[in-house]
Design a protein around this nucleic acid. Sequence first.
DNA 1: ATCAAGTCTGAAACTTGTTCTAGATTAGCG
DNA 2: CGCTAATCTAGAACAAGTTTCAGACTTGAT
Lengths: 216, 216
Amino acid sequence: MPAQAKVAKVEASTSQPASPPLTERQEARRRRILHASAQLASRGGFDAVQMREVAESSQVALGTLYRYFPSKIHLLVATMQDQLEHMHGTLRKKPPQGETAAERVAETLMRAFRALQREPHLADAMVRALTFADRSVSPEVDQVSRQTTVIILDAMGLENPTPEQLSAVRVIEHTWHSALITWLSGRASIAQVKIDIETVCRLIDLTDPTATGKPS
Amino acid sequence: MPAQAKVAKVEASTSQPASPPLTERQEARRRRILHASAQLASRGGFDAVQMREVAESSQVALGTLYRYFPSKIHLLVATMQDQLEHMHGTLRKKPPQGETAAERVAETLMRAFRALQREPHLADAMVRALTFADRSVSPEVDQVSRQTTVIILDAMGLENPTPEQLSAVRVIEHTWHSALITWLSGRASIAQVKIDIETVCRLIDLTDPTATGKPS
DNA sequence: ATCAAGTCTGAAACTTGTTCTAGATTAGCG
DNA sequence: CGCTAATCTAGAACAAGTTTCAGACTTGAT
């Protein structure tokens, strides 16, 4: 186990309030916890992430784990934030090829989807936590949502989205989450998820102010 | 998860396999349970639906409760089925007024949304259960999904939807569920939910084979 | 180096979903 | 009616998330 965290100071690359700055050892603990969480999740999904096991795996007392992440849901949402950052970096490297914004967004989401397919259990744990989260986790869930929005807007290649476009993006995110859930719970095939994503992405063209009603 | 009793599954008015027919007392027990579930949920949402309390409220032993509904999630999803049937009946009575299919669907969903607003805690419990459900609840969740589809197709006034239209309907359902969640967890306003629903409903016009690209 | 405040640890306790058991009731049938 | 299998009941027991607590360890400032 690589238990080495060098950790520059500073908080995550994305804007975060960051309450009290963490010491180096604390940052290391935090990383160990997130790593253990992702690892256990990869093995057996949501249920396999047991707080006692996470604590043991990351060599931290149970109470400490709860000091860092006030609930299992918080922990998994944080794990998702972590993975999303990763993915955003990866996606940035090879921008999508599509002609239209709709195609590029669909391509990006399908790429993300394929990444999730490689670790379906991990995906299960993260997505279930995300949708199960109650108000007490709103800030964290919102952060995930913002990050997703950024990824989609990136794929669209937009600087100044109109309110209409933002609504379309929200709808795309809704579809993305919900389609993921139906796939994870075995109620929809991969092909169906693909179709749904492509379908919803058509909304983008519909709200594109530069194109004047392009018939399909 | 092991163990499955050969329990009863009831036949809702809508098509269902329905294992063994229930006796009258059993049917009554089942109703008491669902009633208690909805009542507790209305009070305090998902967390307030505690299996021991449901059992007590419905005058049934805990073991019996589990024989009827193999988990809390099953119970809440069944509660949702129940409420949905109710709502479908109500909606049928006053069909939506809109000119276009998109308008009628949006109107119908907003009407449903307002009904949920009247019992936000109940909505919370049902929707959280629905999205948290794992594979073991797939049949039941699927049933809810089918029922929702029927409601939407009803509003569209369609007999023979094309595959494209079915996909649009699925996307609308995705948006509906997910928007509901963001509202329930306080991350989106009612106004925003309305906008998102109206936005996604535009997909319907986009897939309407009888209209040839009506610009808004 | 020292002290106060804040953190971390290990362990036990508490909560609520779920399972199990032994005995009472009920339903269907001859 | 009387029997047998299925169902129901009360209650204990178990599992995993969460809380709590006393004591050991770190940290930051003096």
